[in-house]
Design a protein around this nucleic acid. Structure first.
Lengths: 179, 179
DNA sequence: ACCTGAACACCGTTCAAGT
DNA sequence: ACCTGAACACCGTTCAAGT
């Protein structure tokens, strides 16, 4: 019976996708599920916890999309991660900013761990892996958030993001050369 | 008499600094100023516009801190910009995330323009300047936002941000070599 | 010109009560 | 066990009314 929690979270995310974060009230979510707002509390425990649940959902979706295909080329994997983050923001423009704006829960470390794996396989010295992973994470979340909120000026050209990804690849290569 | 608007914005920012964004209601700001909430509307025009006003205030403060001292070394200027953004977030942890989460208004382009100036002086080919400036902006805002919200995992070491800045310097140098 | 009182349509959350 | 009605203390915002 705990897929009722999942049902509620799914409907909340759908609501945010359709009408924006500001429209997501406990009452509005409940109506979508066919309950009153008070009935949600045992399942999701308050609005704040519900938002944390949405963050978990986004991380889950990101993990599903990227998968763990045994792609050996770290450059391919880094580009794929970057594109997946941006695509996730595109599918969930209302909810995506939560990733950067709320304390990172346990599930939030998925992307962080994936980036560390890429850097390790690239041959980045172990002592630099956590810092560099965090740096790339800050860029990816900042970029996709700003794109979706308008907090960043609009991109000058359509290929800008791909060029940014190549710059990230070079950044990693430079860190490898230090070794 | 338009420093009354400024008074209201200053008090709103102080309130957010002290008690967090969630505590900033029109009524709470008004009480701090010594008015009722309805009296604020002619000056700041609704809560959303008030939040935009806070963004302007942050950009102003950033511009004041960095100044336009004729520092000729673009590396110094890039590091100074990065440190200033991070320090601003440290002073205003509640309000800072607004920079990335709200559409960039006219004043928001200050930092963007400053970064473009640095890249130009560094000798980055003109065609790459806007993209690279935006990339660095995404990193800086993402980094400082995530640090202040907990959306990014905690830094591994105390010198991590300085090391990140050196990586940015190298990123710019690499873009210059392409020229 | 500048401000307030009263009111409206909402919030999140609690808790006793219903089935 | 699961849900609801009623209630509380809040919101943002409008507008007629006060000075």
């Amino acid at each position: 019976m705990d897929d009722k929690r999942r049902l509620i979270l799914d409907q909340a995310l759908a609501l945010v996708d359709e009408r924006g974060l500001a429209a997501m009230s406990m009452r509005a979510v409940a109506e979508r599920v066919g309950l009153t707002s008070m009935a949600l509390y045992p399942y999701v425990g308050g609005k704040d916890a519900l938002l944390d649940g949405l963050v978990d959902l986004l991380n889950l979706e990101l993990g599903d999309e990227v998968g763990d295909n045994g792609e050996p080329d770290w450059r391919h994997r880094l580009r794929a991660l970057g594109r997946a983050v941006r695509a996730l923001a595109g599918r969930h423009p209302g909810a995506f900013p939560l990733l950067l704006n709320r304390p990172a829960g346990a599930s939030a470390s998925w992307l962080s761990a994936a980036l560390r794996g890429v850097l390790h396989d690239a041959g980045v010295p172990g002592g630099h892996v956590p810092r560099l992973a965090r740096m790339i994470l800050a860029f990816l979340l900042g970029y996709a958030t700003g794109e979706v909120t308008g907090g960043l000026p609009p991109a000058a050209g359509p290929g800008d993001f791909e060029a940014d990804l190549e710059d990230l690849v070079r950044l990693v290569e430079a860190a490898v050369r230090v070794a």
